[in-house]
Computed example of a mutant assay.
Amino acid sequence: MRFYGGLPFLFCVLIRLWDHHILIFLAECILLFSFSRSEVQFQPLLYLPCGHGELVGTDCAIIHEIYDNGHAQEQFELELEQALEAQKSIIIIEPSHIGDETARWIIVGNCLHKMAVLAGVTSLTSPLLLPRNVSNFVCIPMGAISMACALLYGVSWQFDPCCKYQVEYDTRKLSKLPLHTLSTSSPVVLVRKDDKYRKVLHNVISGMTCIYLGYKFYHWFLQ
C-alpha cells in the first residue's frame, strides 16, 4: 500500500529544515565540493566600526535621513544605489520608506528562491511517494511553480544588486554597529552575502524539474 500522506509530510519537513538552514548548508556543501579548492574563496563578514557620515570607510555605508531640500527622496535612492554598486559589506538605511521598500523587495526575492527549490524538490520526489495516477496531479503543478519562480527570479532579481544583501535581524550583530548615533531607532540594516551557490541551487533544481516534465510530456504525446 502506498502512503498518500507522504508528500505533505515531506513538504512540511523540507520547510522546517529550510527554516533552520540545514538544507541550505547541505546544498552549499555539495556545490562547494563540486568546484576546485582553488576556485573557492571565503570572504568572512567583518563588522567594523562605522563613524557618522554618509559613506564610512570601505565596509559600511549609512544612508542618513536628512531633508535639506525638496529632492530628499531621490537623494536617498541615489545614495543607496551608490552603496549597492560599491558592494559595501554593511548598509544602514535610516529613511523608513526606502528601507521598508528595500527589505520587502529582498524578502519577496527570498520567497521566490525558496518556492523554486521546495516546489522543484516536491515535483521530483512525488513520483517516489505517490501512486502514478496521483503523482501527476502533484509533480506537474509543483514543477510549473518551480520553473515560474526561478524564471521570475532570474528576470527581476538575479541581476539586481539588492539580491546580494539580506536584512540583518540578529540583535547580537546589530549591537556591534553604531546604531545609537542614528536619528531613528529602527533602521534597516543590509548585510552583503554571497548568493552564488544559492542561485546555482534553485537553477539546477528548476532545470531538473523542467527536464523531467519535458520527458513526461514527450512520452504522453508518443502514446
Results as ranks from 00 to 15, higher is better:
P8R: 08
L84S: 06
H52M: 01
L190S: 06
P187F: 06
P187R: 03
A150K: 05
L151D: 06
H64D: 03
I98S: 00
F3H: 11
I98Q: 00
G70S: 07
T125S: 11
L174H: 12
I205V: 15
I63L: 09
F221W: 12
F221G: 10
L151E: 09
W18F: 11
E28V: 10
D100I: 02
Y47A: 01
S96W: 01
G70F: 07
T122M: 09
S38H: 11
K88E: 08
P141L: 04
W18S: 15
I140R: 14
F9G: 12
T102I: 04
C210V: 04
I24V: 14
T184R: 10
H21I: 04
Q75E: 10
T184K: 09
Q87F: 04
D160A: 14
L128H: 09
K173C: 11
C210S: 11
P8Q: 09
E101R: 14
R2K: 13
S175W: 04
R192T: 02
H52P: 02
A119E: 07
E39G: 01
D68F: 03
I205S: 10
C50E: 03
S185N: 08
S34A: 08
P161Q: 09
A72P: 00
L48C: 00
G120Y: 07
I91M: 14
P127G: 10
S206I: 11
L201T: 15
S123M: 13
C50K: 02
A150S: 09
I211L: 07
V155C: 13
E81C: 04
F3Y: 10
H20M: 13
R198K: 07
Y218N: 00
E94R: 07
L48S: 04
K164E: 12
G207K: 00
L26E: 05
I205Y: 12
S146G: 10
L179R: 03
C139Y: 06
F9V: 14
N203A: 04
C60N: 03
R198I: 08
K173W: 13
C60S: 03
I24G: 08
E39F: 04
F76L: 01
L124T: 05
E79V: 04
N203M: 12
F137R: 05
Q158C: 06
D160R: 13
E94W: 07
I93Y: 03
T122L: 12
